[in-house]
Design a binder for these strands. Structure first.
Lengths: 333, 333
DNA sequence: GGCGAACGTGCAATCGTTCCCAAAATTTGT
DNA sequence: ACAAATTTTGGGAACGATTGCACGTTCGCC
């Protein structure tokens, strides 16, 4: 019993009685007569032939593989994003290669890998070290686009929610409910996303003549947000509302409220940003600003494909509007 | 300005003043003198050379790409699994290519893709259609292993939690708390995982002299589980405890309890299976059987690598013990 | 100092495709 | 029915690496 070598294009050609060019054309949609096409397809299926991916991409310089760099998946938002990307890219025959960035290190150490897997393009949904990555990728002529985060150096194109708009709308919502003492729990400080949300929220408050909100870092983590919430609510004059830079932290904040015996939406209002799946669950019923994930993913893929096709699109960041979703975690003061 | 073609091994060879064989050996760890190695590495880094992935895998028949087929990621368990796999495989220089199976269709329609991307191996963490996939993969000589699910045809190796042990332990726990009227919410019926858990749970109850539990299908979905919970709890003689075939459904069951004004752990006990991250959150505090995900992933990767290395391992399913985690969603009857 | 062993090197074949090119076959027009 | 236009076909050169083989070197050792 010899290990059967998988059939090659030549085996198919022989069996179909044509040249390998014909077989190639039959598979890639080149011009072939109906007759040969049939014969080729028949021979191929009899032999269980499948074109070799590596040979093909060696010749064409296309792998139909797209890298997706994301941070720790315990933030519910990312699984949703991954699923959407996977589905969207599948429509164009592409697949997602995952790069989960180790929390602290960011994705800098995996740049080499990112560039070494023959990907057609890369989507950076990870927050940190965008600048270095940007530089390295453009040097390697690798198409890149950012998702839910902008490259502050302005060299990479990207797609994100209009964070400033969203944060302003959340601010208006809380202010409209009569809150004036509002705290903010931000994410990691060097993330553009967090910064934009925080800044816009603050500005809106100041513009409404309210005091500058207390700012705490939640580091985009549950523990961080829980700790921040604890500190805020146990202070002498606790805020009546807290705006968290994302749902992941807002949910932790709600948990912490319960722990402290405060009812979210009554004793203290909590608002988030993202609208992850479980935000809608009755236990949380989180008021939040919904990111238009589907539209963002579509735009992102489109942009990346344009880059891959050779269209230069430098530094343009597309900002899509989301939608305020009011639930019961916020209420009148 | 001409589009600069990425440097090839030949460019490096020329610049370093050696043959391409030497360059290749310097990169793949072949035998080269210290002197040449240095010259090659220097030339390579000056040119920003990276070996072409496709050329390399064409020659070596190895892509260092592993396919991972999973179902909808809204079940919290899978993101955790994905992250673990990604991390574990990265240790061996491999990357995960994602195949998210569209709910209804299962992964049957994507078999061709699964086999067409030049993967070194495939991990099936998706529940359905294992048999067809198994057949097709072995025919294509593609190493495959199942995760958290067993191939009933017994042809594919796999790794999963000892579901029967786990379910029995959960049953004992509930019985020990004095429950005798216990209902079960199962997943999709043709999933081995659900079947094993349900069967073992039932057996344990019968063995304890308790009545055969009511069985409802939750279809592994939130909505399904919520509906089932509603029906169970609004019945004439509602059960005092509910065992859900996974946490995803158990969490939905808890939500539904709140909706119906019943306190989990007091009015009705809820137990799950998996121990996903949020099960530990105070809002849920779900009693559950923890799957040893890290160990499972390790074993799974090891098994797959063995297959890739050519060691035949047919149909062996490894079942690892987990651990009961008691929280407050279950209580005395 | 001479003789193997050990090591480092380059040549050339090879992996399985795609695609250009010229030739052959077919269709079309008159 | 013949020439021109069109379509289909096969040969063969890439694509960018790895690797078996044979040939020099270098070195150690008696």
């Amino acid at each position: 019993m010899t290990a059967v070598r998988p059939p090659t294009i030549i085996d198919v050609a022989r069996r179909a009685g044509v040249s390998k060019s014909a077989v190639s054309r039959a598979f890639t949609g080149g011009s072939v007569s109906e007759d040969t096409r049939e014969r080729v397809l028949k021979a191929a299926s009899e032999l269980r032939y499948r074109p070799s991916h590596s040979a093909r991409s060696l010749k064409t310089n296309r792998s139909r593989l797209i890298g997706l760099a994301v941070t720790h998946l315990d933030n519910q938002f990312y699984p949703e994003v991954i699923e959407k990307f996977s589905g969207r890219l599948a429509c164009d025959g592409c697949r997602v290669v995952l790069f989960v960035t180790r929390g602290e290190a960011g994705l800098e150490p995996m740049i080499d890998e990112l560039l070494g897997f023959g990907l057609d393009g890369v989507i950076l949904a990870s927050s940190s070290h965008a600048a270095e990555v940007a530089a390295e990728c453009t040097r390697a002529a690798m198409p890149v686009i950012m998702f839910n985060n902008v490259d502050t150096s302005g060299r990479l194109p990207g797609v994100c929610t209009d964070n400033e708009l969203g944060a302003a709308i959340v601010a208006d919502h809380l202010i409209g409910l009569g809150h004036s003492s509002i705290a903010i729990i931000e994410g990691v400080p060097d993330s553009s996303t967090s910064r934009e949300r925080v800044t816009a929220f603050r500005e809106r408050m100041l513009k409404a003549g309210l005091p500058d909100p207390v700012l705490r870092s939640g580091d985009y983590s549950s523990q961080g947000a829980a700790q921040a919430t604890r500190e805020l609510l146990m202070a002498e004059a606790p805020p009546t509302a807290i705006f968290c830079a994302n749902d992941h932290m807002a949910l932790a904040a709600i948990e912490t409220c319960h722990e402290l015996g405060k009812a979210p939406g009554r004793d203290v209002s909590i608002a988030g940003f993202d609208d992850v799946g479980i935000a809608a669950w009755p236990s949380f019923s989180l008021t939040t600003y919904k990111q238009p994930v589907a539209a963002m993913v579509d735009a992102c893929v489109e942009g990346l494909f344009a880059e891959i096709a050779g269209e230069r699109m430098i530094g343009e960041t597309l900002r899509l509007p989301g939608e305020l979703v009011v639930r019961s975690s916020t209420g009148k003061n």
